[in-house]
Simulated assay, not measured.
Amino acid sequence: MEESIKTRQWQLAHKPRHEPQLSGPEQTFKLAEVDLPEPKDDEVLLKLLSYSNDPAQRGWIDPDIPAERLYVPPVKIGQPMSAFGLAEVVESKSSKFSKGDTVTAPTGWTEYAIVKAGSCQPAKDLPSGLSKTHYLGALGLTGLTAYFGLTEVGQTTKDDVVVVSGAAGATGMMAVQIAKKIIGSKKVIGIAGTDEKCRWVEKLGADVCLNYKSKSFAEDLKKETPAPDGYASVFYDNVGGEILDLTLTRMGSGGRIIACGAISSYNTSAERTTGLKNWFEIIIMRLKAQGFIVLDYANKFGQAIELFNKSLQDGKLTLDESSETVVKTPFEDVPKTWLKLFEGSNQGKLVTQLV
């Protein structure tokens, strides 16, 4: 590349305390055009193909979370919104990658990016013509989050009754399959937001999936976790809020709560740490609740990915078009697609595919 290249970016303009705004005086993101320099040694120039949409991104732009409490640097005003991307190598100054390779990398919301070659992971062709966008979800950090949450944090076994909230989401749908088909837990109960999603989660392997919007949800959950032998022993929680509060009452003695996410409160900061009525259940039932970040287990990523690949070949993992919601998006609408995360409209992983 003989001269700099121009690229558009979506940069952070205002840190939202509630729902991010697409327009108005407190618009969360602004569209900008910047010049990128030539890549240096051991760097690559990438053209973005798709973005991963993750609930965790909401925390990276929250003004009420101090930087020292985050596991990654927060996005600063004027910086591109942080995101993982699937991209094509346009130019390489590294022996690791060649022009035309497809990779995943932390790129941000930008059309082109220059990144260190060491931060890129190859995205090779997948069997049966599976889309490479799965590297942003089930075969990437999302699937790894489900796996290490269950195995390392929850210490899940074949003898466990496992409940998974957000079971039709990107992490939840992998947690259901891993618990039932790889670990072999005796009962897996999913929780999702529509009857259609519940039936899909059951097809993935859940013994039953309950619609939390149903008027009978509380009774349904009680029925599926009968006292005392049918109580849940592991709760993989992606949602928090009222669902967590209710599930605390259905946990058996010594149960483990895998605190992965709390999407129910991400856009309502005042309620983020309040609202649990059943905290006493943790005491009387000797429950363990542990939060975690998937990066804690980075040294084990390789062996987990190998297990995923073998499980795909053995039919223990189901991955197809229904496992992700790919939204074809012009660059001008990237923030709009991201906000679909908080509407509950996606099934499986929500991916922004640039057009």
Score class of each variant (00 low, 15 high):
residue 5 I to E: 01
residue 7 T to N: 02
residue 10 W to N: 03
residue 10 W to F: 12
residue 13 A to V: 01
residue 14 H to S: 02
residue 17 R to F: 00
residue 22 L to C: 02
residue 25 P to G: 00
residue 28 T to S: 02
residue 33 E to K: 05
residue 33 E to P: 05
residue 33 E to Q: 13
residue 35 D to T: 02
residue 37 P to E: 06
residue 39 P to A: 02
residue 39 P to K: 03
residue 44 V to A: 06
residue 50 S to M: 11
residue 50 S to V: 10
residue 55 P to L: 06
residue 58 R to D: 08
residue 64 D to E: 08
residue 65 I to N: 06
residue 67 A to S: 05
residue 74 P to D: 04
residue 74 P to F: 04
residue 81 M to F: 05
residue 83 A to D: 02
residue 83 A to R: 02
residue 84 F to L: 14
residue 86 L to I: 07
residue 91 E to S: 10
residue 91 E to G: 00
residue 98 S to V: 10
residue 98 S to M: 06
residue 100 G to K: 12
residue 101 D to M: 09
residue 101 D to G: 10
residue 107 T to N: 01
residue 109 W to D: 02
residue 112 Y to T: 00
residue 113 A to Q: 04
residue 121 Q to H: 13
residue 121 Q to L: 12
residue 122 P to M: 10
residue 122 P to L: 12
residue 123 A to I: 12
residue 123 A to G: 01
residue 126 L to C: 08
residue 126 L to H: 10
residue 129 G to D: 09
residue 129 G to T: 11
residue 136 L to F: 11
residue 136 L to C: 08
residue 140 G to V: 08
residue 147 Y to P: 00
residue 152 E to C: 08
residue 160 D to G: 09
residue 162 V to T: 12
residue 163 V to N: 06
residue 164 V to I: 12
residue 169 G to V: 04
residue 171 T to N: 12
residue 172 G to N: 03
residue 173 M to E: 15
residue 178 I to R: 13
residue 178 I to H: 07
residue 185 S to P: 12
residue 185 S to L: 09
residue 192 A to W: 01
residue 197 K to I: 04
residue 199 R to Q: 11
residue 201 V to K: 12
residue 201 V to S: 00
residue 202 E to L: 02
residue 203 K to M: 09
residue 207 D to G: 07
residue 207 D to C: 12
residue 210 L to C: 05
residue 211 N to H: 03
residue 213 K to D: 03
residue 220 D to G: 11
residue 223 K to V: 10
residue 225 T to G: 10
residue 225 T to D: 09
residue 228 P to L: 15
residue 229 D to I: 10
residue 231 Y to K: 15
residue 231 Y to P: 05
residue 232 A to G: 14
residue 233 S to V: 12
residue 236 Y to R: 12
residue 237 D to N: 15
residue 239 V to K: 04
residue 239 V to A: 05
residue 245 D to R: 09
residue 245 D to H: 05
residue 249 T to L: 07
residue 249 T to V: 07
residue 252 G to F: 06
residue 255 G to D: 13
residue 256 R to D: 15
residue 257 I to T: 10
residue 262 A to Q: 10
residue 264 S to R: 13
residue 265 S to G: 02
residue 266 Y to D: 11
residue 272 R to H: 09
residue 274 T to N: 14
residue 274 T to R: 15
residue 280 F to N: 14
residue 280 F to P: 01
residue 287 L to E: 15
residue 293 I to D: 04
residue 298 A to P: 06
residue 300 K to S: 08
residue 300 K to T: 01
residue 303 Q to K: 11
residue 312 L to C: 08
residue 314 D to I: 06
residue 316 K to P: 12
residue 323 S to L: 03
residue 331 F to A: 04
residue 337 T to S: 05
residue 339 L to A: 03
residue 342 F to E: 01
residue 345 S to Q: 08
residue 345 S to D: 05
residue 346 N to C: 00
residue 348 G to I: 03
residue 350 L to F: 01
residue 355 V to S: 14
